[in-house]
């Protein structure tokens, strides 16, 4: 089996976990989790240097889910990677669970930063990347933002800062699914074109199809070669990717599938 095929299978398994846990919780954010799945899969199962048995390992690569509402994709990847048992995914958002509605670094093993208030994760990523430079460590810092999220002004403060400090150990992704809670990003507050903006702030920008595993891996290889600039991968994605009735529908931003919808969705992901 090729590496690409293995990663695609893993991504399908993660999508199934996302749907099952959000279904069990009765709330959560499936749309933006599914659009981010292929990239998160590539990071956790190919790119990042991690040790699930030692989540706080100093030398590990970091991943900060700046679009914290996509917590289900992160939890699914962490469980799949062995940070905690997969069964625990079904406890998402429950009072007795360590899986909060948004990522909590103090409750969930493997979560590198508490996020959920949009625009803040990228700043934390800048801090981790700066610390890496200061300590002359080789780890890299990955962060994922939503295209809706980049409407937050703090993102551009962070972007300016990362460019200024030439943080080539920082690799960002914009999950460019063009939908946010209420509707289309271009109608609510148009952030496009995204790539040109980051370029203007001193980033090396790579634009890809965020569901094409080959393109994702190629972008990650390219990122390794970049010097003196942070890297932003603008990933064109489809919100709700993998489930026909969720794809491209803003309504699935923050709604859980009912039992019937879950069955239908899982049937599409075999």
């Amino acid at each position: 089996m090729t590496k690409i095929k293995q990663l695609e299978d893993k991504a399908r398994e993660i999508r199934r976990s996302i749907l099952k846990m959000v279904g069990a919780a009765g709330s959560g954010h499936p749309g933006g989790s599914l659009s981010a799945t292929d990239i998160v899969t590539a990071l956790y199962f190919k790119e990042m240097n991690l040790d699930p048995h030692n989540p706080d390992w100093d030398e590990r690569d970091r991943f900060i889910l700046s679009k914290g509402h996509a917590a289900p994709v992160l939890y699914a990847a962490l469980a799949e990677k062995g940070y905690f048992p997969k069964e625990e995914l079904q406890t998402l958002r429950r009072l007795d669970s360590h899986l909060q509605g948004h990522p909590d670094m103090k409750k969930t093993p493997g979560v590198d930063m508490t996020t959920g208030s949009l625009g803040q994760g990228i700043s934390a990523a800048v801090g981790m990347a700066l610390a890496g430079k200061l300590d002359q460590k080789d780890y890299r810092v990955f962060t994922m933002l939503g295209d809706g999220e980049i409407e937050e002004g703090q993102v551009w403060e962070a972007a300016m800062s990362a460019g200024h400090h030439k943080l080539d150990n920082l690799i960002g992704f914009v999950d460019n699914n063009r939908l946010q809670l209420v509707g289309k990003t271009e109608e609510i507050l148009d952030v496009h074109p995204v790539g040109e903006k980051f370029e203007a702030f001193g980033w090396h920008v790579i634009e890809i199809d965020g569901h094409d595993m080959k393109e994702i891996l190629k972008a990650l290889d390219e990122a390794k070669e970049v010097q003196d600039k942070p890297i932003m991968v603008v990933a064109n994605t489809v919100k709700g990717k993998g489930v026909s009735f969720m794809e491209g529908e803003a309504g699935w931003h923050g709604n859980a599938p009912n039992e019937e919808e879950l069955k239908k969705a899982l049937a599409e992901l075999h």
Binding site: M113, Q120, A124, V126, M128, M160
Partner: peptide, 28 residues
Amino acid sequence: PERFFQMGIAEQNMVGTAAGMATCGKIP
């Protein structure tokens, strides 16, 4: 100078960056 970070007039990012650095064992 190597442990001093001039973040510019961008306080929100300054606070978030400090938080990130604290996760790496620094005392910002």
